[in-house]
Nucleic acid binder design. Structure first.
Lengths: 237, 237
DNA sequence: CGGATCATTGAGATTTATCAACACTAGTGG
DNA sequence: CCACTAGTGTTGATAAATCTCAATGATCCG
């Protein structure tokens, strides 16, 4: 880790802390928070951060890289719950239970901050800003999960996926119109509840229609407006 | 309200309080909780508890009746987010935001307990049991929303819907194998992301195959095992 | 009774999945 | 440097599930 020396004072790469600051926490409180942070990683592509059934003790904020969360159903099919970019938090769905309900795997080289949940919960009773932030994070995920649940067309889903990704990347300072897909087509398919072939075909058609350029895993959004219009009913809030 | 005199001491009909007790709260704390509870209702079928865009200030526990939460998308289609039975809490998806992101409407005569969210959050800093309960409620909804999102067949969805309803009713002391559907077919369809016609056909076929009897809105589950087997990959946890 | 709402049924259209084959890429080792 | 291979992605043909549209039927409530 490059910034070992700083990790107990201020972790500039950890968006979790920054968000807490925004919720009204002072720097003194932030240091309380950082005492219970554990920097973990790097995890290399394919390495698991946790697996379904592992005892739950911590949530984690992605600091770098991409993390995929997924479940395997009784029929052996993979269901991707989400792709998590730097600044986003995983493990929230495990709070209600003894174990993680899903798996989390790194798609590229990923670094995380682990927060012991029992400890952060105790701290949250002392720091209203932290509690509020946690409530918000949880609440946001409810809404996010509900959105994907709608019966949208393949085109709408794909557009929403790309626009959503673009916005989240932009919020982290990356380019909003040109980026790498860190996940395989199959992962996108399992996330959007489509067949991989359908993902392929939709991307191809989007390219033919001038909405984007796609080369292997490199994507460039050309007609953001039209994509956003497609995605609109899904992302609408 | 029948139990006006008791509502500041103990609200036996409010499962929210009971769950908090189970999380380790003592009776003294429970009274703190009840000071900020507001019993609202009855709402009659079709009356709204809140609407999308209303300023968010409170979550609410259903005490009696059924509440449907839903959104209308840009194309004017209704998306049902959930049906909420006594003991279940609505409004959690509004915590991250200034306003409710969805509508909540009574399907039959419904009574609720409103909890001012700012107040309950403050109280939660003093009562760890309450904070834990809230975290769990939120976390549970994330998992629940993710489940419905899968690409399941119409049969699986319908079976999961019925078995899920049956279990929740049973948990509240109602019959697990014979109950009333308080929602219209269209509501079920919008919840399961199916066409109303498909709902009708699946129910009819289930009846033909001896899985259940359905008459108008009255349902009797005859072969719970087979329905549960169908629903299994969806409900699997 | 009459109208409105809700539910059912059938026929055909549409979307997406499935199956099978092929292409491309990157990495490996001869 | 060139096969070779494994993994990944693409493409086409066909099939299956579900939707849509249209019509009919049932129930409730004034």
């Amino acid at each position: 880790m490059a910034d070992d020396g700083d990790e107990l004072t201020f972790c500039s790469t950890c968006a979790f802390s920054q968000a807490c600051l925004a919720e009204g926490m002072d720097k003194r409180s932030l240091m309380d928070l950082h005492v219970l942070v554990e920097h973990v990683g790097p995890f290399h592509a394919g390495e698991h951060i946790f697996r379904e059934g592992d005892p739950f003790e911590a949530i984690a904020a992605v600091r770098a890289g991409t993390v995929k969360t997924y479940m395997i159903d009784r029929d052996g099919r993979e269901h991707v719950l989400g792709f998590h970019l730097p600044g986003e938090v995983i493990g929230l769905d495990a709070i209600d239970g003894e174990t993680y309900p899903c798996n989390a795997v790194a798609l590229d080289t990923a670094m995380l901050c682990r927060f012991s949940f029992p400890k952060i919960a105790v701290l949250a009773t002392k720091l209203p800003g932290l509690q509020r932030h946690l409530f918000r994070l949880l609440s946001r995920d409810i809404g996010r999960a509900a959105l994907l649940a709608g019966d949208w067309s393949a085109d709408q889903r794909m557009a929403a996926f790309l626009i959503g990704l673009s916005r989240r990347l932009a919020a982290r300072g990356f380019s909003a119109h040109r980026f790498q897909l860190t996940m395989a087509r199959t992962d996108i398919a399992n996330y959007l509840r489509l067949a991989p072939e359908t993902v392929s075909r939709v991307l191809r058609r989007f390219q033919k229609d001038g909405l984007l350029m796609v080369d292997r895993r490199e994507v460039e959004l050309l007609d953001r407006d039209q994509l956003a219009a497609l995605a609109d009913p899904i992302l609408h809030r």
